[in-house]
Design a protein around this nucleic acid. Structure first.
Lengths: 224, 224, 224, 224
DNA sequence: CATGAATGAGCTTTCATTCAT
DNA sequence: AATGAATGAAAGCTCATTCAT
């Protein structure tokens, strides 16, 4: 009936089967955790026998790594595809955040594998995610720098933009880390609370970008 | 010198033995992960036989839960002990953050169990941490509300305090989530980068509290 | 240059392919042992696909048996080809031993399959080698008998040949067993110690043939 | 009834259980071969569960090694116990051979593990046996040397002992190898053919010691 | 109070073997 | 003539958990 072959039909090319296996693996790893996920369950969910999984993906570790890489790439691609480099820094940031929240909401299992599972299970895997995370943090760092040069979020009623006090490099890095952490945290919360990607992005922009503006203008918090 | 007997001596009261076991368990869970940690290893590290662990703590699940509870309590207690309720909201916030960063740095295994392991391994455990997280988020929510009523971070040079536009409850909740996430992220980064708790707290105050001030004054980010 | 097509070229007559497979099998069985050798490895080493191995050789057991038969035949042929039946018994023996040591040194994998692997793995295979071994033992028995009739290894300085005391049939059989075992043992040792086939054959002739001569003359060892 | 507790009774000391396991393992390895022997089968034969085997002996490899060592020690001890160092070399040799044939006949599985299995399966194990074999070969070498010094098997009717031509060290080593190989081969044959240990020892003494005597007296085989 | 002895169940991994093309 | 795709069955090993003392 259907024009699409049933996912269960036998004898399909390797590339297709591999994707099916990784789909099943991501789902299983997300729900059970790396150790608790059994290759039996993954194979069954993929609709193939266990030996075939091993034939194509070699071991549980390699399968997990392959999943992490695929999901990391999909996520970064989704974010990068949303960014229009000619727009101002804040618009780029907003677009990136919106894409991030949208992607994580649409791929909760992939996000879980990246955010929870991969970072929890030792060095072979954590490094894979750290790389992705650092890429994003670097990008955010650049955006903050750009914003600083453009003159940023003017305080309403304040005199026009002026270059704020220099932000130390270490501070910028820390801010990027904080921002990424906030986004990660919000991603989990937004999905559970039924917040849309646009709302979440707006929320974080208000929170972070505005605060950033303050920093740019030299505002600092200190004990009174 | 010490009034405490050697940790290895036989025949000690149950409460002490239990703490030793949980110390060993927290360390093992942090290093290996919930599933990979074996009761054998925990018992050996605690210096007792395996049946004794079962006698006192019943099962791996209960042991893990007990660890989570203990560490969660220690963390929240550390934060709350640092807060002086009569101080202004921002000072409370700073003190809480400083205590948080200090405690996580001084108890990396406990923090790892809470932040990484517990949330990664299914419902019985994640709920335990969510509770703690929510407590903190609620507290932050209260602080923000208080700050809003007191009139907060005045824009330098702006006219004195004025009540900001109302912040929707949902927004406040989201901000709290973002703040907690940022703090968690910074906790990891700070420990690796050798940032002191005070520095990390200051960084986050500048980032968050300032932004918060903007929000209070009705500043919002939007597409131009 | 060569009239033989590359071993990797496609579409070659069955007989040739079969030999390639058996070459690969002998090598793999020798290096890994019967059980540890995988059909995958054999097929890959032979440069063909696994189903083709099954098409031609039916099963791992049959493949192993085929290897044993081929190697046993090659060995016995090598030994027999070296023997000139019109020569005296001792010269025949020497020539046979020399050929044996030479062949095992030049075909260590084949020898390993016969000597080590085949005898180690249950009845279907051990019988195959026993047959070959018995053939050789029988031949040695005949030689000894011939030597006995000819009057053999005269003690230097002793009066000419005289028919020795009768050797019981069972003794002759035992001697043949001992001789074959000694040869097998020397084959391994000689290869490792860099002893040439001629030297090894000489050594064994001195050892065995001389002793044999003593027996023929009725010398017997007994407690004093 | 029996004064001996049933081998199946539960809860026995570790040392006893370990011996039971090794008994079962030796039997299984001998009958099936190293690879084909399954830990399941060994455990069942030993009357214990598989985990207990692993608890005590760690792995299949270690279990195999332990078996090899135990059987090698038992064999060498049996041989050494039979030797009376004050007796002449030939009597020592005879006693050693007799003990060897007796022990291998009474412990066919242990002998199979040493002679067949251990040498067939790669380096960790073969080395263990080589050590034992070399010990024996060295001992034989010493005996041959002693015999040479004492003046040995006089040709009947020949004038009293005289020091034979020097035997090169390499030759002596080769002879020892041949002798050990012959004994190994005879051990298998004697067991199958119902030859007693004494008969087998006598056979080999006649064969080897007599030949040796010839060599000592300078007799050499050569092409005529 | 404390433990040495013991196991049922389940995991990852491998292999000989067969179809469908 | 030849192969890519696929699997049933079993093996080595580990673990949470319990008895008997």
């Amino acid at each position: 009936m259907s024009a699409v072959k049933s996912a269960r039909s036998k004898r399909m090319p390797r590339a297709v089967r591999e994707q099916q296996m990784m789909d099943a693996a991501v789902q299983t790893f997300a729900q059970r955790g790396y150790r608790a996920a059994s290759m039996d369950e993954i194979a069954e969910l993929a609709g193939v026998s266990k030996p075939l999984v091993y034939l194509y993906l070699n071991s549980k570790e390699e399968l997990f790594t392959a999943c992490i890489r695929r999901e990391a790439q999909r996520l970064t691609e989704a974010v990068q595809a949303a960014i229009e480099p000619r727009l101002p820094a804040d618009e780029q940031m907003w677009a990136g955040l919106e894409a991030f929240f949208r992607h994580t909401r649409e791929n909760p299992d992939g996000w879980s594998v990246l955010h929870r599972q991969a970072r929890t299970h030792g060095e072979p895997f954590a490094a894979e995610v750290s790389k992705m995370r650092q890429e994003i943090a670097d990008f955010v760092t650049v955006l903050i720098g750009a914003a600083a040069r453009q003159g940023v979020p003017p305080a309403p009623g304040a005199a026009g933009s002026h270059r704020g006090d220099e932000l130390a490099h270490r501070d910028v890095e820390g801010l990027a880390q904080a921002l990424v952490g906030a986004a990660e945290s919000l991603a989990g919360w937004a999905n559970d609370a039924g917040i849309s990607a646009k709302e979440a992005a707006g929320l974080l922009m208000n929170f972070a970008w505005t605060g950033l503006g303050g920093l740019m203008r030299g505002e600092r918090w200190s004990h009174r």
